[in-house]
Design a protein around this nucleic acid. Structure first.
Lengths: 369, 369
DNA sequence: CTTTGTATTGGTACCGCTCCCATCACGGTC
DNA sequence: GACCGTGATGGGAGCGGTACCAATACAAAG
């Protein structure tokens, strides 16, 4: 029985052979090195060591070299908590995203981290699960730990949130979101125009019977998108049923469930505009699993253009949102503020772009005319 | 022109109307509240306030209530940097992943965060980009900031890494990875058996001409998987060319490029075993983009069973790895250590499971016999 | 009534670092 | 030779908490 033989057999050996059944590895001998130790070993005062640490120019080149070598030799690591305590700031930036499992956010996260790390900042991620309460909790942590700045994406507009944000004494950058009554830097995306574009595309393909599966109703981007959809409908003389707009939570499963629900209806829409690619893929999956075809039986559009959009079962027609650039830009704005720029709040808006793939098609049996 | 009209028009209005062209919002008035302020406002000593803060039971219930209300009323937030300085620890856990854009990792990240947050710990993510140097940098930050613990996934085995890990004085948990010569808690997965399973599956479908697109050669999971593949080949009397094993970096693009390269060859393999689902999807995409079919022209297998695996153009045959459970488990081990458990290093291994979907099929023209 | 224990609170060293304010040697200036 | 600017360094006071040790009060015990 190869299976039995293989299972866990060799890998265990490898591991055990590597010393795992020793006692717990001993705590590192070099107990607690402080700046004082470095000072005495270098025969110099703490002040000067501190200057070396912070690259203060008022240090003799020779002294600096000597201190540096001692630091290296003793493997000294300065305590950033102590540093932060006295300076009142710490080189850490918080990043709040709605759901890290959504590629839209993980792409942004990667971009933000790259830019900020390169400038010596650490990024602390908060996955809010689209939950304002978790966001507020995180803002408190942010205060406790004296973070240098915060980048917020997603999630809802909310009174409590704003009052909590106001208590912050660090720069805040909003990413693809704005908050009524809280003026601050915003890096955003033309959600309204994007929604307009995608709706217009589907309208031009002859569709008249829509459903719109939105994101959370309170979020600023949802509001803008809804405005764009409605404007497109209005501009083309289409009146859509009031129950056409449905609000979801942007997760794949939600789209899937929505697709299943559609299948139970008698009078199905011919097109669904989804609030993000994740939900769009879920809808498509529900149709396919039940033997129907996209776009033949249903045209579906997404929003964001995540990488997966082009690779899924039916490549998605969607609105491209430049995730990497937006993340980089947000990080750049943070750095700018941290470097002391005190100008008025800025607003940087990225353009929407329609990407037509294979999840939409001209309607077969026009319902009207 | 509806387009021109729509673009940026309304959304700007909304924003500007919300007060964005005010001056920068003023810094919060409540300057710097310290424990001292709370003490004097409550007519009590700092010591007692500190006790209230840390839920020390030796405080009169009445006093506690009074202090609490003052804290709330003044909106006081304790300074965790100061706290951390004196206690030498801070409630923060580091998490190193190879690439946050890979759903495999983002799923784990979410799980780890949920468990750890629930116990009051903050998680700091490090996206190493599969780069040992970045990992080492992060370990240093970890020391500077006195993190309570570290969870490491992915990346390479490496001398420098181990020596850096040894300098850490906090618990370290390895997730789906082990390090020769560094005994510590490991939450892992039976990579070898998984590889064996998937190879056997393809062999049983009649394939004899393989390519294996592995992950990074030095990583422990790659090593185990290679062992599993080779054992399956050996058990079935198959000798495969030495150049059958190729090492990649687990990214989608790498799979795509690999697929393109295959297409240029005259003597193509009939099956490719990919080191993760991401690369497998890339390979499939390359074939489809060039008018070929999967699994008709090539059987492809993945590894991990990320959510996307079932939704991509060709649903993937792959090895299921319980990402959420593994993340939760790792977090649990961390908590356990942090709560003072000093037992010998533990090893928790999750079982591999083959998931057969549509990216593999019986070979059409058996090459041998 | 003194002793002893217990519950509660206060006082005071630090934790490890930065910042401000000397101090000091040195060469140039008048 | 006294004065002074400058570069380099040292010393000490915190930053905002915690932790240890006393101190206090009051009740129970002897």
């Amino acid at each position: 029985m190869p299976k039995k033989l293989t299972k866990q057999e060799d890998s265990s050996k490898v591991f055990i052979g590597s010393g795992s059944n020793q006692l717990n590895r001993p705590p590192p001998i070099l107990k607690k090195l402080t700046i004082k130790d470095i000072a005495s070993k270098s025969g110099i005062s703490r002040s000067t060591v501190s200057r070396v640490l912070s690259d203060n120019p008022n240090v003799n080149a020779e002294t600096r070299a000597r201190v540096r070598s001692v630091i290296k030799a003793m493997n000294y690591i300065p305590n950033r908590l102590a540093q932060g305590l006295v300076t009142g700031k710490i080189n850490v930036v918080g990043l709040i995203v709605g759901d890290i499992r959504n590629p839209y956010f993980s792409e942004i996260t990667r971009a933000v981290e790259e830019v900020l790390n390169a400038s010596g900042y650490l990024v602390v991620l908060c996955d809010s699960a689209y939950n304002t309460e978790k966001e507020v909790d995180f803002l408190n942590v942010t205060r406790e730990l004296r973070f240098a700045s915060i980048i917020m994406t997603s999630a809802m507009d909310n009174e409590g949130l704003i009052s909590n944000l106001s208590k912050l004494s660090c720069p805040v950058v909003l990413l693809n979101r704005y908050l009524q009554g809280f003026p601050t830097d915003v890096v955003s995306f033309d959600n309204q125009y994007g929604a307009y574009l995608v709706a217009e595309h589907v309208i031009k393909l002859g569709h008249r019977h829509f459903k719109v599966l939105m994101g959370p109703a309170q979020s600023s981007s949802s509001i803008d998108r809804e405005r764009g959809y409605r404007k497109a409908f209005a501009d083309h003389g289409i009146t859509c049923a009031e129950d056409a707009f449905v609000y979801g939570d942007l997760r794949f499963e939600t789209g899937y469930q929505f697709g299943l629900d559609l299948l139970k209806q008698k009078n199905r829409p011919t097109a669904v505009l989804a609030g993000n690619d994740f939900m769009a893929i879920g809808i498509i999956k529900a149709y396919i699993d039940n033997g129907l075809k996209v776009p033949d039986d249903l045209s579906v559009t997404g929003f964001d253009d995540i990488q997966m959009a082009g690779m899924s079962a039916v490549p998605l027609t969607t609105i491209r949102q430049p995730q990497v650039e937006m993340g980089q830009q947000a990080a750049q704005v943070v750095l700018d503020r941290l470097h002391g720029n005190k100008s008025l709040p800025r607003r940087i808006i990225f353009d929407a772009e329609l990407v037509v793939r294979e999840s939409t098609r001209r309607i077969r049996i026009p319902r009207e005319h």
